[in-house]
């Protein structure tokens, strides 16, 4: 299966380098979900996200000639997406490792924020709640969670994208999930979460 995907990607890249615009469109369609996830998780400014996704694919196109299939195509594209987002965060002086929960508030303080029943209306789904909490985690944790749980990447693949050792990826992932679980427990009961 993996070999088949690799073979298909090789043919796709050859077609793009041979000058087939349709093939590049196919590549964008195949990877826009992955790139979108990385960008939407890392970039807080909504208006910049789409432009950034576009920039990433332009970079992919410009550098495709140097891609030698030493890694998976998706890993290589995700790496470009991550680096582009990292540059954006550096330029805007935004944190990568800092907690994004409201400043100066502990987990216990957050409970009162969500106690407003109106805020709950229409968002009674676990995924929405989990999503909200991920946004409050450090950016790097949210990115790792997305890559692991949504794109089913291995520690090694995530490590290649983020340029981190496997052990660090694993440790961040465990820490992120623990943090997420604790925060969700503080905010909601299990029944509410599963509702």
């Amino acid at each position: 299966m993996r070999n088949q995907v690799r073979q298909d990607n090789r043919l796709l890249v050859d077609r793009i380098l041979g000058g087939d615009p349709g093939a590049f469109k196919q590549l964008v369609r195949d990877h826009e979900r992955l790139v979108g996830q990385v960008v939407f998780r890392m970039i807080p400014c909504e208006s910049d996200r789409e432009d950034l996704c576009q920039d990433i694919f332009v970079k992919v196109y410009q550098n495709l000639v140097s891609f030698r299939f030493d890694a998976k195509l998706s890993t290589w594209i995700a790496r470009i997406a991550y680096t582009t987002c990292l540059n954006y965060l550096e330029k805007k002086k935004l944190p990568l490792y800092e907690d994004c929960s409201p400043e100066g508030k502990t987990i216990d303080d957050c409970r009162s924020d969500t106690a407003d029943p109106e805020r709950w209306v229409g968002t009674r789904q676990a995924s929405v709640r989990v999503c909200e909490e991920i946004d409050r985690l450090p950016v790097i944790y949210g990115t790792i969670l997305s890559l692991f749980h949504l794109h089913e990447m291995t520690y090694d693949e995530i490590g290649k994208i983020l340029r981190l050792p496997d052990g660090t990826v694993k440790s961040y992932l465990f820490r992120a999930r623990k943090m997420l679980k604790e925060r969700l427990e503080v905010r909601y009961t299990l029944e509410e979460l599963c509702a």
Binding site: E32, R33, V35, G36, Q37, V39, F40, R41, A126, S127, R129, V130, C131, I134, L145, S146, H149, L150, R177, L180, L193
Partner: peptide, 9 residues
């Protein structure tokens, strides 16, 4: 829940 946290639109 984590498996259903698509955020890209």
């Amino acid at each position: 829940g984590l498996g259903r946290t698509e955020v890209s639109y």
